[in-house]
């Protein structure tokens, strides 16, 4: 059980037993519009914090999804390839992108809390 943390690139991350579940925030999903395609990394891929890990596309836009923290991809949400609409319907639940086994779970403390993120979005 851990609280959800956020990045300035609008990813959210939730950590359990050293494994981070990652997705994009409701704000990001709304800004993108109807999500039509999600490109997920291969299982086993090593990802680096703040580097591209996935791609999310709407009809008129494509955005990189960055890994919030460094680690190895241990699971991806394959349901999104059949039903990318889950990202819009439930971005912080069923619309998750990937699970990353973290190198340093403690790094999550550097990310924003929900309150901090809400304030950040307000300021955009």
């Amino acid at each position: 059980m851990s609280e959800t943390r956020f990045t300035e690139q609008h990813e959210w991350v939730r950590i359990e037993n050293g494994v981070a579940t990652v997705g994009i925030t409701r704000y990001a999903a709304e800004q993108l519009g109807d999500v039509v395609y999600v490109e997920l990394p291969a299982i086993g891929k090593k990802v680096e914090a703040e580097k591209e890990a996935a791609v999310v596309e709407s009809v008129k836009a494509a955005s990189e999804v960055y890994a919030p923290l460094s680690g190895e991809v241990v699971a991806t949400n394959d349901a999104l390839s059949a039903d990318p609409a889950k990202v819009n319907a439930d971005p912080e639940g069923e619309g998750w992108f990937m699970k990353i086994r973290l190198v340093n779970p403690g790094d999550a403390q550097k990310l924003m809390t929900r309150d901090a993120y809400d304030a950040f979005v307000k300021g955009l």
Binding site: Y37, E57, S58, V59, K60, A61, A62
Partner: peptide, 14 residues
């Protein structure tokens, strides 16, 4: 026209 996120007017250098 569809799947245009592959194209230059959206993806630009990608």
């Amino acid at each position: 026209l569809t799947l245009s996120t592959r194209e230059q007017h959206i993806r630009r250098e990608k």
